[in-house]
Every structure is written in structure tokens, then in C-alpha cells.
């Protein structure tokens, strides 16, 4: 145990360096995914036929194939048609489009649970359809989506380990080099696991805080009257 603690404290600076890149991957992927998820989620529920079709195609394609395949296609495949990304950018893009597909589905569920009545009420005071969506339905859906959406940062953070396979020096890559240097793979990967665990815990706490802050008084999480 004390031998592992020594390894852990020796490896910690490198692991934290890697964790920083992991967080960066997660953050950029999450934000990119949020933008794509909003577009695709709204498109799927409220878009006209082509927009709906496009949204469904995007969502099904990126939820239906492994993240690793997407990453390799972007990093190794796209250069074949003249589009080249750096390792980091390829990882950002893969995580972003992948997460966007999942976030779109979370949002779709929330949009649908807001209910048709709110649309009627918005139209009745003379708002246009898209005004009603933006001022009435989306604000409610974004609050409703938080409990299920809260899994996404954590899932994405863990998925970001695939970036290691295109040699992005994130947490997993650092663990691997620690394992090679110390000839102690169990110790090294255990140390990485501990760092992941701590980061995930902190992230979870933040999500819970967000959920509390955005609650609508008198309305419970499912959108029904308390």
C-alpha cells in the first residue's frame, strides 16, 4: 500500500497534467455537443420534413456507431479526402459530434414532455411558433433535461479516454507512460482510476447544484405539478 502511495504521489503531477487535457476534451466536446444537440433535438421535434430527416440521420448515425470508429474516421479517414485535423482537433470533433447525438435525444424527450398545451398558450397570445419554442418551451425543456443530461458530462469524460488511441496526451496516455516507467501497470492504472473517480465526483456535485438552482417552484422534475 505504501509503495503504491509513493507511486501515486510521484505520478500525480503527470496524471493531473493528463487530467487537465481530459477535462479540456470533455469541456469542448460537451459544449460542441450541446450546440449540435440543441439543433438536432429541436430539428427532430419541431423541424419541417427535411430538417427532421437530417436530425434523425445525424442522431442515429452517431449513436449507432462506436465513438472509436468515428474518431478513426475523422483522424485517419478524412485526410484521404483532403481534410486533415490535428490529434487534438480530431478528438474534440469526434467527442463533440458523438455527444451531440446523445444530447439531442435527451433534449427531445424533454421537449416532448413539456406538452402541447404550452404551445397552444403561446400561440394564443400571438407569439409565432418559433417564438413560442424559444420563449416558452425551450426554457422549460432545458430545466427538465438536467437530471438525465447530468449523466452526459460524466459519460463523455470517461469516453474521452479513446483520444489516447490517436496519441492525445490525456489522462489515460499519461497512465500508460507511468506504467511503462515504473513497470507497475496495476499501480499506474489504479492511480489513473482514482483521478477519474475524483473528477467524476466533483462533476456530479456540480450537476446536483445546477439541478437545484434551476428548479421551478411548484413543479417537480418530471414537469408535472407537485
Amino acid at each position: 500500500m505504501s509503495a503504491w502511495l509513493t507511486l501515486f504521489s510521484n505520478a500525480l503531477p503527470a496524471l493531473l497534467d493528463g487530467a487537465l487535457i481530459t477535462l479540456q476534451l470533455t469541456g469542448v466536446g460537451l459544449v460542441m455537443g450541446l450546440a449540435l444537440g440543441l439543433l438536432a433535438g429541436l430539428g427532430r421535434v419541431y423541424g419541417n420534413r427535411p430538417l427532421r430527416w437530417l436530425s434523425v440521420a445525424y442522431i442515429e448515425l452517431f449513436r449507432g456507431t462506436p465513438l472509436l470508429v468515428q474518431l478513426f474516421l475523422i483522424y485517419y479517414g478524412l485526410p484521404g479526402i483532403g481534410i486533415t485535423f490535428s490529434r487534438m482537433d480530431a478528438a474534440f470533433l469526434a467527442l463533440g459530434v458523438n455527444s451531440g447525438a446523445y444530447q439531442a435525444e435527451y433534449l427531445r424527450g424533454a421537449l416532448q414532455s413539456v406538452g402541447q398545451g404550452q404551445m397552444l398558450a403561446g400561440r394564443a397570445i400571438g407569439l409565432s411558433r418559433w417564438q413560442t419554442i424559444f420563449y416558452v418551451i425551450l426554457p422549460q425543456a432545458l430545466r427538465l433535461v438536467i437530471p438525465s443530461w447530468a449523466n452526459e458530462p460524466v459519460a463523455l469524460l470517461k469516453s474521452s479516454a479513446v483520444a489516447f488511441l490517436v496519441a492525445v496526451p490525456e489522462l489515460m496516455a499519461r497512465a500508460k507512460s507511468v506504467a511503462a516507467q515504473t513497470y507497475n501497470p496495476i499501480g499506474a492504472y489504479l492511480a489513473a482510476a482514482v483521478v477519474y473517480l475524483v473528477v467524476v465526483f466533483l462533476l456530479d456535485q456540480f450537476m446536483k447544484y445546477l439541478e437545484r438552482r434551476t428548479r421551478i417552484p411548484g413543479l417537480d422534475a418530471e414537469g408535472t405539478r407537485a
Binding site: Q118, L120, A121, V136, P139, I216
Partner: peptide, 9 residues
């Protein structure tokens, strides 16, 4: 409306 349909948020 019969069921009010206030904006819940």
C-alpha cells in the same frame, strides 16, 4: 383556457 395553460416556468 379551461386548464389555464399558464407558462409554468
Amino acid at each position: 383556457f379551461q386548464n389555464f395553460l399558464l407558462f409554468n416556468h
